[in-house]
Write a protein that binds this DNA or RNA. Structure first.
Length: 483
RNA sequence: UCCCCGAUAGCUCAAUCGGUAGAGCGAGCGGCUGUUAACCGCUAGGUUGCUGGUUCAAGUCCAGCUCGGGGAGCCA
């Protein structure tokens, strides 16, 4: 069996006999006595045309009944195509039908344009379409490039836990993980009641649930970020990253949110914010360059049919140097723009969290390249970000890219225990539950930094796809966990 | 979660003021053709998302629900 990608790349000799296996996209009959069958196998964007002569033993009984979606194995001589539209084709000596389509009339994937909304309802079959095949190969290409980038630079991939008992990750609502019987929840004993007398205890629904009886002996959840865990390994292995699924129970119904998505979070020791920004720039350029090199066929398709700008956008991204500016300067630029009459929906003021319109002005209009904005006001950033000497800003950075806005968020972490404790206090957080995180600052602390990248959003950016539900195989969103 | 819009054949959509349910594509059959968004003819295909209401009469009007889309918020 030869992958179609190898044949189209010229790896199989013309006039040699090859076998391809795949699924029928279309069949066109010539009553001169033969048929054209277009077969795709997912190995590349293009399909391969198989010419089926009428003297095949199963021509009348099977070949003439092939429809979209049938699986076949075709063997024959590889030749230069006589027709237009493809370079090679197979003159079939035999076509084995592996699996027919039961009811061609109702086969959900027809050789025509389908709406993405419809294809989501047939997510088990949509990978057979041009678009989802291309998305899938692009996704894989980027994922492989992520690992290759870090591996080449000596990073360790850390498999941070999916289940966490920290209720303190603080990045949004969490999914509870529990084996308790929801219809009969154990309750804590009322004050003064003998704790050993569980069986006769009256189950009062107003009493708090007794999670000591749950599987892990305490409340547990699905992770919303691997960052805190990966910091532990950073302060031992120096260069580490996570790349895995992440879960948010937010009731977000947008084209940019999933309840289950994949996130990449590198973390580097003995490093400051500038080193973090350098890493982010090298990283993004590396994975997008891999995409341009390895998936030119799929990117050409996206440029033709999905978003005509996507190819130029990625090419420009790879070659442009990133602009660096402080948050304070960014605000000055925005204020200058307002003074010149530029309109923003939200007013510009130092201390505000920048809106998407502000970020896009900076990266698209002001500099026309990716921008790294650094040193944000501490009020709008997380507790673990390193406090700067001005005591007003923290060493946080966002990478803003034309066409999307924020693509990466990161920071240098607060490595000084007393400053971290002060920040926890200021934000009214429970120090006790961060003891293991605080230990990292007590035992051989070092400056370290990292960032987070939403993998699906990166795919959106590269392909021009509009909805995040269409760049993950089986999207999980509020009210939808089908398939 | 909030605001707006939508749900009609396998798919994409139409149906005037409330008055017999339509087309294209796809599918089946036939014709034609080194075809490739093929083309021509014929045929089949419908509980108009669900529940209730108004009416002589509801795809159409009203209420509730379910699902989907766009925007906002939250964020990656």
């Amino acid at each position: 069996m030869t992958p179609i990608t190898d044949i189209l790349a010229g790896k199989a000799a013309v006039d040699s006999t090859v076998t391809i296996c795949g699924w029928v996209r279309t069949r066109r009959d010539s009553k001169a006595g033969f048929s054209f069958i277009t077969v795709h196998d997912g190995s590349c964007f293009d399909a391969l045309q198989v010419v089926a002569p009428g003297n095949l033993a199963n021509y009348q009984t099977e070949v003439l009944h092939l429809t979209a979606g049938c699986s076949v194995s075709a063997t024959g001589k590889l030749v230069r195509s006589q027709g237009k539209g493809q370079s090679y084709e197979i003159q079939a000596d035999s076509i084995q039908v592996v699996g027919m389509v039961d009811d061609p009339d109702s086969y959900p994937i027809q050789p025509k344009q389908h709406s993405f909304e419809y294809l989501r309802t047939v997510a088990h079959l949509r990978p057979r379409t041009n678009t989802f095949g291309a998305v899938t190969r692009v996704r894989n290409c980027l994922a492989q490039a992520v690992h290759r980038f870090f591996h080449e630079r000596g990073f360790c991939w850390i498999h941070t836990p999916i289940i966490t008992a920290s209720d303190c990750e603080g990045a949004g609502k969490m999914f509870r993980v529990s084996t308790l019987d929801l219809a009969n929840l154990p309750r804590k004993s009322p004050a003064g009641a003998p704790s050993s007398d569980q069986r006769s205890e009256i189950k009062d629904q107003r009493l708090p649930v007794d999670f000591a009886q749950d599987f892990f002996g305490k409340e547990s959840f699905l992770t919303v970020s691997g960052q805190l865990n990966v910091e532990c390994y950073c302060l031992a292995l120096s260069k580490v990253y996570t790349f895995g699924p992440t879960f948010r129970a937010e009731n977000s119904n947008t084209t940019r949110h999933l309840a289950e998505f994949w996130m990449i979070e590198p973390e580097i020791a003995f490093a400051d914010l500038a080193a973090d920004a350098d890493l982010a720039e090298a990283f993004l350029k590396y994975i997008f360059q891999a995409l341009l090199t390895e998936r030119a066929d799929d990117m050409k398709f996206f440029a033709q049919r999905i978003d005509k700008d996507c190819l130029a956008r990625v090419e420009k991204f790879v070659s442009a140097s990133f602009e660096r500016m402080t948050y304070t300067d960014a605000i000055k630029h925005l204020e200058a723009a307002v003074a010149k009459g530029r309109q923003f929906e939200f007013p510009v003021k130092w201390g505000m969290d920048m809106q998407s319109e502000h970020e896009r002005y900076l990266t698209e209009e002001l500099v026309g390249r990716p921008v790294v904005v650094m040193n944000y006001p501490k009020q709008i950033k997380a507790f673990y970000m390193r406090l700067n000497e001005d005591e007003k800003t923290v060493a946080a950075m966002d990478v803003l890219a034309p066409g999307i806005g924020e693509i990466i968020g990161g920071s240098q972490r607060e490595e000084r225990l007393e400053v971290l404790d002060r920040r926890l206090d200021e934000m009214g957080m429970n120090k006790q539950s961060y003891n293991w995180y605080r230990d990292l600052r007590r035992y051989g602390t070092v400056p370290h930094a990292g960032f987070g990248l939403g993998f699906e959003r990166t795919i959106l950016y590269a392909t021009g796809m509009q909805n995040i539900r269409d760049v993950i195989p089986f999207p999980r969103t509020p009210g939808n966990a089908e398939f």
